[in-house]
Amino acid sequence: MTNPSNHGEGSQPNGSGPSPVRGRREQLLRVDRLYGITLFAIGVFATINMMLASTERVLVMTIAHFYEQYGLGDYVRPEGLAAIEWAGIILHPLNYAIWLYFSVRRWRAKKFTAWFALMGALLAWIISSLLMAAAVIAHPGLIDAMVQQGFPPAATTAP
C-alpha cells in the first residue's frame, strides 16, 4: 500500500527524486525555448526583408509592374507612398520587438512561448498585406483596371 501523503504531490513512490511530470514539463520548456529562439532568429531576417519590401522604391516597382500588366500606360507616382514606407519601416520592427519582449517575460516565468513567434510572423504578413493594399489604393486607375479585368488580369490569346 502506498503512503497517502505522496498522492498528488508529484514525487516518486518512494518519496525521493523529481516528479516525472515536472521533468517532462521542463524538457518541453527547453524544446519550446529552442524553437522560440530559432524562430525569433529567423524573424530578424524576415523583419529586415519586410522592411525592405515596404520601401518606396519597391512599392513603386511593384505598382509599375501592375500598370504594365494591366496596360495602363506610364506609371505616375502618387503622393503618400512615403507615408506607407515609413509605416512599414516602423511597424515591422515594432511588431518584432513587442512579441520578443512578451516572449522573454513568459520564458522567465517558465511558460510556453514559441507560438508567440508564429503569431508575430502572422501579424507581420498582415501588416505587409495592408501596406501593399494601401499602395494599390493610392492608384485609383489601377483599382478600376483590376475591377474591370479581374485580378490577376485575364490572359489574352493571340489568334
Rank of each mutant, 00 (worst) to 15 (best):
M1K: 10
N3E: 05
P4G: 02
P4V: 03
S5W: 13
N6A: 14
H7F: 13
H7Q: 14
H7V: 07
G10K: 08
S11D: 11
S11E: 14
N14C: 13
G15A: 01
S16E: 13
G17A: 06
P18K: 09
P20T: 01
E26D: 02
E26A: 03
L28H: 01
L28T: 00
L29T: 02
R30A: 13
V31C: 14
R33Q: 07
R33N: 01
R33W: 02
Y35K: 14
G36W: 11
I37N: 14
I37W: 10
T38L: 09
T38D: 08
A41F: 04
A41L: 05
A41C: 02
G43K: 04
G43I: 07
V44S: 10
V44P: 07
F45R: 00
N49C: 08
N49P: 13
N49Y: 14
M50S: 15
M51N: 09
L52Q: 12
L52M: 09
S54F: 02
V58I: 13
V60M: 01
F66H: 12
F66G: 08
Y70C: 00
Y70L: 00
G71W: 05
G71L: 01
L72W: 01
D74R: 00
D74K: 00
V76D: 05
R77L: 05
P78R: 00
P78K: 01
E79N: 10
E79R: 12
G80W: 03
G80M: 03
A83V: 02
A83H: 06
G88I: 08
G88V: 11
G88T: 11
I89P: 00
L91M: 11
L91G: 06
H92K: 10
L94T: 04
L94E: 00
N95Y: 11
A97L: 07
I98W: 04
I98E: 03
I98T: 04
Y101I: 15
F102L: 12
S103M: 05
W107F: 10
W107H: 10
R108H: 06
A109N: 12
K110R: 14
K110H: 15
K111E: 07
F112V: 05
W115Q: 15
L122F: 12
L122D: 12
L123G: 15
A124E: 01
A124N: 04
I126N: 09
I127K: 10
S129M: 11
L131T: 15
A135M: 04
V136D: 14
I137A: 10
G141F: 02
L142P: 06
L142Y: 03
L142H: 03
I143K: 02
D144P: 12
A145E: 06
V147M: 11
V147K: 08
V147H: 06
Q148M: 11
Q149S: 13
F151V: 09
A158S: 10
P159W: 14
P159I: 15
P159H: 13
P159S: 08
